[in-house]
Amino acid sequence: MNIATIALLAFGMSMDAFAAAVGKGAALHRPRLREALRTGLIFGAIETLTPIVGWLLGLAAAAYVRAWDHWIAFCLLGLLGIRMIYAGLQADSDAEEEKPSRHGFWLLAITGLATSIDAMAVGVGLAFLDVEILPVALAIGCTTTIMVTLGVMLGRVLGKLAGSRAEIVGGILLIVIGSLILWEHLHEV
């Protein structure tokens, strides 16, 4: 793989995480750059590891991972989206102070994992192409870190525009991302 191909792959793999990060940023009470970087690093670390895991699985069980990756992503993102919508509906519509100033580690890790299932599938495919996985995984992880950090900060602006229902918008966004992942995989057959 050449550098341009790796860069395009890394950018493509980071787009789901970017969209989820916009929703995460919108659900927070004025997220700061530090929180955006923290979120970016969590997502980036996961996006670095999942293609490596996929590459290793590709050596052992490629058909299994490819058969279920879209369903796993759909279910995880759907459940997280429903949880965010529920939390948004429970919130007082004019209580901006009730929004958290940061998301918990495990919530971010689960969201990061859900948006990186496709990177795991890419790792499986790269195992068959005999590609050196470490440079590709690092490129995906670094790109995701940057894109998620930008996404959280963009979500801050969108959160102000959406008002107290930003968490509902973020939840809907996660459900849409999961649905699109499922739709893409079901229609590529």
Results as ranks from 00 to 15, higher is better:
residue 10 A to I: 04
residue 10 A to R: 02
residue 12 G to L: 03
residue 12 G to D: 06
residue 13 M to S: 04
residue 13 M to C: 05
residue 13 M to H: 00
residue 14 S to E: 02
residue 15 M to A: 04
residue 16 D to H: 00
residue 16 D to R: 02
residue 16 D to W: 01
residue 16 D to C: 00
residue 17 A to C: 12
residue 17 A to K: 09
residue 18 F to H: 10
residue 19 A to M: 13
residue 20 A to W: 03
residue 20 A to S: 15
residue 21 A to E: 12
residue 21 A to G: 15
residue 22 V to S: 06
residue 22 V to G: 10
residue 22 V to K: 04
residue 22 V to C: 09
residue 23 G to N: 13
residue 24 K to S: 11
residue 24 K to C: 11
residue 26 A to I: 04
residue 26 A to P: 05
residue 26 A to M: 13
residue 29 H to I: 00
residue 29 H to R: 12
residue 29 H to W: 05
residue 29 H to V: 00
residue 29 H to C: 04
residue 30 R to Y: 03
residue 30 R to A: 08
residue 31 P to I: 03
residue 32 R to E: 12
residue 33 L to F: 14
residue 34 R to M: 06
residue 36 A to L: 06
residue 36 A to T: 08
residue 36 A to E: 05
residue 37 L to I: 15
residue 37 L to V: 15
residue 40 G to Y: 08
residue 40 G to K: 10
residue 40 G to Q: 10
residue 41 L to K: 04
residue 41 L to A: 15
residue 43 F to R: 06
residue 44 G to V: 08
residue 46 I to D: 01
residue 46 I to A: 00
residue 46 I to V: 15
residue 47 E to G: 01
residue 49 L to V: 14
residue 49 L to H: 04
residue 49 L to D: 04
residue 50 T to W: 01
residue 50 T to S: 05
residue 50 T to H: 00
residue 52 I to W: 10
residue 52 I to S: 08
residue 52 I to R: 08
residue 53 V to M: 14
residue 53 V to C: 12
residue 54 G to P: 07
residue 56 L to Y: 14
residue 58 G to P: 02
residue 59 L to H: 09
residue 59 L to A: 06
residue 60 A to E: 04
residue 60 A to K: 08
residue 61 A to K: 06
residue 62 A to L: 01
residue 62 A to H: 03
residue 62 A to G: 14
residue 63 A to W: 06
residue 63 A to P: 02
residue 63 A to Y: 02
residue 63 A to K: 09
residue 64 Y to F: 11
residue 64 Y to A: 13
residue 64 Y to C: 00
residue 64 Y to W: 08
residue 64 Y to R: 05
residue 65 V to Q: 06
residue 65 V to K: 07
residue 65 V to E: 05
residue 67 A to S: 15
residue 68 W to L: 12
residue 68 W to H: 15
residue 68 W to T: 11
residue 69 D to Q: 14
residue 69 D to Y: 14
residue 71 W to R: 11
residue 71 W to L: 14
residue 72 I to Y: 10
residue 72 I to S: 09
residue 72 I to L: 14
residue 74 F to G: 02
residue 74 F to D: 01
residue 74 F to H: 04
residue 74 F to W: 12
residue 75 C to G: 03
residue 75 C to I: 15
residue 76 L to F: 13
residue 77 L to D: 07
residue 78 G to Q: 09
residue 81 G to P: 01
residue 82 I to A: 14
residue 83 R to S: 13
residue 84 M to L: 09
residue 85 I to P: 06
residue 85 I to Y: 08
residue 86 Y to I: 10
residue 87 A to E: 15
residue 89 L to D: 00
residue 89 L to C: 08
residue 90 Q to D: 05
residue 90 Q to K: 14
residue 91 A to E: 11
residue 92 D to R: 09
residue 93 S to G: 01
residue 93 S to P: 14
